[in-house]
Amino acid sequence: MNSSTSSSLDLISEYDKALSPHVSSSEPYALLDFPDHYNVGDSAIYAGEMAYFDSKVGYSPAYVCTFSSYRRDVEDFAPEGPIFLHGGGNFGDVWPAHQDFRHEVLERYTGRKVVQLPQSIHFRDQKAVDKTAKAISGHGNFTLLVRDRESFDFASKAFDCEVVMCPDAAHNISNLSKGAAKAPVLSMIRKDREQRGDSVVPFLESLGEVKDWERQFWARSPMDRIVERVISPRIRQTGRLMARREKMFRRQAWNRVNYGVRLLSEGELVISDRLHVHIMSSLMNKKHISLDNYYGKIERYIAAWGNDGLVTQVSDLSSLKKAVTEAGYG
């Protein structure tokens, strides 16, 4: 799909087309690498993944974990069935902890169906590409879903596996209701290792507040912290504890998504270099201006799946100033 316009229903259909060959209502499944961090976009992805599995499969994953709570024990809860790896933008060497976790899963579960949910791919070092290629080749039953054409072309050449185009899982979330705006303009600019090299921040500061996702300590309840940090590491996991963890992950993901909706509601116009500010703004039916991260993730995504008519894409300070003026906020 590369039409000039897109809708949530179109993208939900595309997501199902890519995923449906790998899901079944007659076997358990596992979903690994829950995003236990402050990036709201990853929580939106997780919420969308669960919305899809709920509607398509009709039951929860038998096994869930973060990369740090994984105990090499998927088979104790899901002795058969596919293993799904959480989607996002960390396939490559920008976020090595998640990539190392993928390699570990592929090594341990050789031959068992492992499906990487849709990712954007970016490598900086050929040695890291070779390491991933070796892990995929040695596994033998890996499917890689990717969110843009550049990732598809790269993976098709570099890796010996099935590669499939698929939109982001967050589109599976129902339309998000925006609240009342508090200011004309809100800017959401990355402060992490994917941040842009140029500085548009002084101009954005002249328009209003410049923020980024903040840590949401309240997303976890006190009991969540006790169970996951104190009790679970010290005892054998049981079905009851796993079921509690699965429900906890859902709740935490939605806590973060709801925080994101409240934050994005603050501005009449939102400007950002985050992909999921774009996607969530679209789900909120909110006009916005999209910059990009340092390797072009958002431009690549919109080129693959279309512009929904709510986003104005800009590439530099000059085009940003023009877009802001045309939106009536210059």
Rank of each mutant, 00 (worst) to 15 (best):
S7V: 13
S8N: 03
D10A: 13
D10W: 03
L11E: 11
I12K: 13
I12C: 13
E14R: 08
Y15G: 07
A18K: 01
L19E: 00
L19R: 01
S20L: 06
S20I: 09
H22T: 08
S24P: 00
E27H: 04
E27Y: 06
E27N: 03
Y29L: 09
A30M: 11
L31C: 08
L31T: 13
L32F: 02
F34Q: 00
P35T: 04
P35L: 11
D36E: 13
D36H: 11
D36R: 03
Y38K: 12
Y38L: 03
N39Y: 09
N39K: 10
V40A: 10
S43C: 13
S43G: 04
S43E: 11
I45K: 02
I45P: 04
I45Q: 07
G48C: 07
M50R: 13
M50E: 08
A51H: 11
F53P: 05
D54S: 11
S55Y: 07
S55A: 13
S55G: 04
K56P: 08
V57W: 03
V57E: 01
G58W: 13
G58N: 11
Y63K: 09
C65T: 15
T66A: 10
T66H: 11
T66K: 14
S68R: 14
Y70A: 00
R71P: 00
R71C: 00
R71E: 01
R72E: 14
V74G: 02
D76N: 09
F77T: 02
A78W: 05
P79Q: 11
I83V: 14
I83W: 12
L85R: 06
